[in-house]
Design a protein around this nucleic acid. Sequence first.
DNA 1: TTTGTATTTGCAATCATGTTGCAAAAATAG
DNA 2: CTATTTTTGCAACATGATTGCAAATACAAA
Lengths: 132, 132
Amino acid sequence: MDTFSILRTHNLRRTACREGILKVIMTSGKALSESEIRSNLSGNFDRTTFYRSFKTMEDSGILHKIVVDDRMIRYGLSESVTGKSSHPHFYCTSCHSVFCLEDSLVAPQLPAGYSSQNLEMIVKGVCKKCNA
Amino acid sequence: MDTFSILRTHNLRRTACREGILKVIMTSGKALSESEIRSNLSGNFDRTTFYRSFKTMEDSGILHKIVVDDRMIRYGLSESVTGKSSHPHFYCTSCHSVFCLEDSLVAPQLPAGYSSQNLEMIVKGVCKKCNA
DNA sequence: TTTGTATTTGCAATCATGTTGCAAAAATAG
DNA sequence: CTATTTTTGCAACATGATTGCAAATACAAA
């Protein structure tokens, strides 16, 4: 799906910043941080605009956050856009990249009274490239 | 185990800040953020001292970080101290508390060439108290 | 195509979180 | 008690993120 259709089906206006962000993420096939996205983006946008674009697209369900403990928030395309189901992520402690894993996630048993909205799993380790 | 023994068995000096942090976490039975810990702590320590205490105790394997997407790092007692095995955490999106879940974690299959060091799972939802 | 309205942008200011160097203070070993 | 090593607190700094507001832009409707 192209960036234009993604924005349109989520009732968002088409702006250069949003389209640029989506294009960079889609091309990379990974979840990226704000700084990674900015350095791969043609055109110069204010940080504020970036943060607001992320928030808007997250709220609309286009992007989802991935947080690893290096305190850098990364954004990836959400399941409704990729068509994939919920899956674990792999964080390479050497090159700091985040990849999607293919397995599906199994929800743990919750105590009585608790309700679940969402499931996140991060596997930390070293990726193929860094292991070589 | 008391705070004194914990520090001693990990070859750390016994300081008021470290003992205070441990005591607050142990009493709460949850993973807490720096600000939560500070507000429950008698005695006033510089922010720097706090951060250094966390880092020292994390490096020694007494504490471990838990990161949820509100960008607040929480610290809980690590498995070597509690005797528990690796387990998922529950994050309440209403009261922002973090609880430990009892299930054990199952590692997903990794692609060839990838190696795993560590596994984290966060279930987001609403806890018993907030559901009531 | 032009115009009107609602949304989005960029800027400046501000806040929160976290880190570093360094001298003074405290903890431990002997 | 003293010497040595570690830890603390302060100031300065870095980074990530948010807010208010006026100017610019996107889009729908004429």
